[in-house]
């Protein structure tokens, strides 16, 4: 099963390699990893998506907790969360297809952020389902280039 871990770490050089290195050497698989500063400049948050059963996730959390720079590990898999990923996709769009693509993107509330002679760059944000759907809908037109971020998550409510 896939788990989402929110890991608060001290914002120091080397923290990311300590955490990423831990996954490599213990043989855990990271599906995605996003890191960025939080409201407190001395603290960063790493949002990790990890595949594994309960035993593996328990080990992952314990090993993370042993890292000196790790402040807190939260498994937010079963929480009510707001999840977002971001996608940039360059899609083939000649004059004939362009209108159709724009209409599709309207439905998904995506934005066109660049227009070339034969292509468009589209920006989408949303949960994983939406991002997948956007990609599927654009695939028939010909995807020239695609880049997406990992998932960031926030627990709903006042917690």
């Amino acid at each position: 099963m896939r788990h989402t871990l929110a890991v608060l770490v001290e914002n120091r050089p080397g923290v990311l390699s300590h955490v990423a290195g831990l996954f490599a050497r213990r043989g855990y698989n990271i599906e995605s990893l996003v890191v960025g500063e939080t409201e407190d400049k001395t603290v960063s948050r790493i949002t990790l998506v990890v595949e594994g059963d309960e035993r593996v996730i328990e080990q992952v959390s314990k090993q993370l907790n042993k890292q000196i720079e790790v402040i807190k590990v939260n498994d937010i898999t079963n929480e009510q969360t707001v999840d977002r990923q971001m996608l940039l996709v360059k899609v083939t769009a000649d004059q004939a297809a362009r209108q159709e693509i724009l209409q599709l993107m309207e439905i998904f509330r995506c934005r066109v952020v660049d227009i070339g002679r034969r292509s468009l760059i589209i920006e989408a944000t949303g949960d994983e389902g939406k991002i997948e759907a956007v990609i599927q809908s654009l695939r028939p037109f010909g995807i020239k280039e695609l880049v997406r971020t990992g998932k960031v998550s926030m627990v709903r409510g006042s917690k």
Partner: peptide
């Protein structure tokens, strides 16, 4: 050496 020893130390530091 900080990179090399990362998996085999409890913790390590490069003091810049």
């Amino acid at each position: 050496i900080v990179g090399i020893t990362m998996p085999i130390v409890k913790h390590n530091y490069l003091v810049k």
